[in-house]
Amino acid sequence: MSGAGEKGSTTKTPADFLKSIRGRPVVVKLNSGVDYRGILACLDGYMNIAMEQTEEYVNGQLKNKYGDAFIRGNNVLYISTSKKTLGEGA
């Protein structure tokens, strides 16, 4: 409670982040180390994620492609915006 909003525009809580990344290309890393790259269709506060045009990378190598994929939030280590979006977002 104490912090959110104090620093104005520089503060971005996890809830703000989740709101801002829908529809954007993302990298989702699971605890297992597997990466999923694709377009983020929707997500919730549990970090459950629905992705489109998903590519599965194991040890940096493309292993699989899925048109649509659901990832259960408990497996998610992090959600990252792709480098491509660097110019658009902030």
């Binding site: 996890p14 982040f17 970090m47 280590l77 992090y78 990252s80 979006t85 977002g89 902030a90």
Partner: peptide, 11 residues
């Protein structure tokens, strides 16, 4: 290297 991430607090 990553641009911006939401890191799960679990680990």
């Amino acid at each position: 290297k990553l641009d911006q991430i939401l890191l799960n607090g679990n680990n």
